[in-house]
Design a protein around this nucleic acid. Structure first.
Length: 269
DNA sequence: TAAGTATGTTAAG
DNA sequence: TTAACCTACTTAC
């Protein structure tokens, strides 16, 4: 379930589980075996997340760069680690627990310089307190592309995926098809602020919840809805259901190779 | 058992 | 714009 909140949460969990102590590293599947051997017995001394990229620091040995892609996962468990199940690219194991990485788009050992190069290709991340939203605004306010595409462009903004883009646009009532340069500065400031709030909540909860208390099915007097991705949301993959607020059917269409979801009634700004 | 789907990205054309 | 890739799960037959 990888949008930026997942990756930031993973950084925290890795630090808590393995930080400051030597860790055993193996690649049961074999595809990361040579690098795992270099890492085995080293101390995890730093973790970082930028957008959907996770970095695990091992001193002079370098950084493990992980990108989960569409369906990569990390599962944590308590020691002793059982025999690996399925395709485990990387297993880290400490005295108290272990973590299994499966199906990542990227898992590679890189240098500090290579890590810097990756950062330079990414826009500001709402979950990195020092990141400056002005950098994103400079690009958005000059672009003819629809805001829904810009929010997903990791060079513009890092960490937002298909769920957060759909939900934040709904919450602000902004049409996904508006061109970036037609947004007002006030609207952009509100988008960034809402992303910061939503994504921080996502890190804390480990899932994406975007529905305000006054709009829950309970509060609206509607039957409870069952999510297939774990969180309570307004429009993402809600096409078989009416909009929670106005009961218009939620609409979907492909945009830049991804499915976009929005409410044509509530999002007319 | 096979096909389809997924919260993502890159490279080829 | 399209295909390819990484894996697991759900749905169809």
């Amino acid at each position: 379930m990888p949008e930026g909140h997942t990756i930031h949460r993973l950084a925290i969990e890795h630090l808590r589980a393995f930080g400051g102590r030597p860790v055993r590293a193996t690649s049961p599947q074999g595809r990361f075996a040579a690098s795992a051997a270099l890492l085995d017995g080293r101390v995890l001394d730093g973790v970082e997340a930028h957008g959907k990229h996770l970095f695990l620091g091992f001193g002079g040995t370098g950084w493990v760069h992980v990108h989960l892609g569409l369906y990569g996962t990390v599962t944590f468990g308590a020691a002793p680690a059982p025999p690996p199940v399925g395709q485990v690219r990387l297993r880290l194991a400490g005295a108290d627990g272990y973590a299994d990485l499966r199906g990542p788009a990227a898992c590679e050992l890189i240098t500090a310089a290579e890590k810097d190069a990756l950062h330079s290709r990414l826009g500001p991340d709402p979950l990195r307190p020092a990141d400056d939203p002005e950098r994103a605004w400079q690009r958005i306010s000059r672009s003819r592309s629809p805001v829904a595409a810009l929010l997903m462009d990791q060079k513009v903004l890092a960490g937002v995926g298909n769920v957060y883009r759909a939900e934040v646009l709904f919450r602000l009532g902004i049409s996904p098809h508006r061109a970036g340069r037609d947004l007002t500065r006030t609207e952009w400031d509100a988008l960034w602020a809402d992303l910061v709030e939503l994504m921080r909540a996502g890190v804390a909860a480990g899932r994406i919840d975007t529905v305000r208390a006054e709009h829950t099915p309970e509060a609206m007097g509607r039957p409870p809805r069952v999510d297939d991705h774990g969180g309570e949301v307004y429009v993402y993959r809600r096409t078989t259901m009416p909009c929670l607020i106005c009961t218009t059917p939620v609409r979907t269409e492909p945009l830049a190779a991804r499915n976009l979801f929005w409410c044509p009634t509530c999002q007319q700004r």
